[in-house]
């Protein structure tokens, strides 16, 4: 059987297209948080499934890179597997699950729990780059609002949350101000991850394929989550710890065990959880099982 990938350029995109994307990336890094329009190409995976992130990764990936791909914090979710295989096949790139070993991490909806370093690049997949879109449907108008820093309307949205619910009710895709200039969508990461964007030593790149926009947060850049003085931004917390590794400070997924309300909570970041378990940290469930064995 002939391989379907034969005959394509290294990392799929042709070099002209890669250069075009890299130019857009440089512009994005020079104007933190600003959405740079770019000539997004049709990729062999569907729009909405990470075409923006994949194009950025393809444009900057080199033979010396080590790639990690996560979706919902985990390396083994189907789409993460699919994208990792895409680059293994088309760029023969070395892959890893360890965020510390990766030079390039492509992610959807999470930032790894382990802190990232200088020289690392975090590539986000972006479904909707425009943080103002839900408030203003016209692109011409939102570009003006960014141009003139007219962001009062976003604050009004948060005001409405507090008026209705007593607190800000935005839990993911929580809007941020980058370098006190551009309002930016952090992509649908939970607000739990927002503080990790702030002054992060790594390069953060954002690709929206369908909407044809690239934006970026350079290393050590201010990223402020919008809030009110008397209703400060806060992140999610859980009364539980991870049932597998006992971590009390990581983002937890809820796993339903039966239809009687039985559930357990486990780290959304699968590598983080596994490495803690290997270091001997045990959650409530693991301890129960060990006791059962004794």
């Amino acid at each position: 059987m002939c391989k379907p990938y034969s005959g394509y350029n290294y990392a799929y995109l042709d070099e002209q297209t890669k250069r075009m994307i890299r130019r857009a990336l440089l512009k994005a890094l020079a104007i933190p948080g600003y959405q740079v329009p770019f000539g997004s190409r049709e990729m062999p995976l569907p729009y909405g499934w990470g075409t923006g992130g994949v194009q950025i990764t393809a444009a900057i990936l080199g033979p010396k890179d080590v790639l990690k791909v996560i979706d919902q914090g985990a390396d083994d979710t189907t789409n993460a597997v699919s994208i990792r295989r895409f680059f293994e096949n088309l760029a023969q790139v070395k892959t890893t699950e360890d965020p510390r070993a990766a030079t390039l991490i492509q992610t959807r909806h999470r930032i790894p729990e382990m802190p990232l370093q200088e020289q690392q690049v975090l590539v986000y997949q972006v479904p909707q780059p425009e943080p103002l879109r839900s408030l203003e449907s016209s692109e011409q108008e939102t570009r003006k609002m960014h141009g003139y820093s007219e962001y009062g309307l976003m604050q009004v949205r948060l005001y409405e949350d507090i008026a209705r619910f007593g607190h800000i009710a935005t839990t993911y895709g929580y809007p941020v101000m980058v370098n006190e200039r551009y309002l930016m969508s952090p992509t649908p990461i939970p607000k739990f991850d927002n503080p990790k964007m702030h002054l992060n030593p790594c390069i953060q790149l954002f690709g929206a394929g369908r909407e044809k926009r690239i934006y970026a947060v350079p290393p050590y850049t201010q990223v402020r989550s919008l809030d009110f003085d008397d209703h400060p931004f806060s992140i999610q917390t859980w009364p539980q710890a991870c049932d597998l590794c006992g971590d009390q400070h990581s983002y937890l997924d809820e796993v339903v065990l039966d239809d009687q309300g039985g559930r357990m909570f486990v780290c959304s970041d699968s590598f983080h959880c596994q490495s803690r378990q290997q270091q001997g940290h045990l959650g409530a469930r693991q301890r129960q099982e060990e006791q059962a064995h004794d």
Partner: peptide, 24 residues
């Protein structure tokens, strides 16, 4: 191509966002 992709991307896992909403 854009519409079909984005509509069907709802099949992708959204555990993290769903968890955030569930909690809220």
């Amino acid at each position: 191509v854009e519409a079909s992709g984005f509509v069907q991307h709802l099949k992708l896992p959204h555990y993290v966002d769903f968890q955030a909403e569930l909690q809220l």
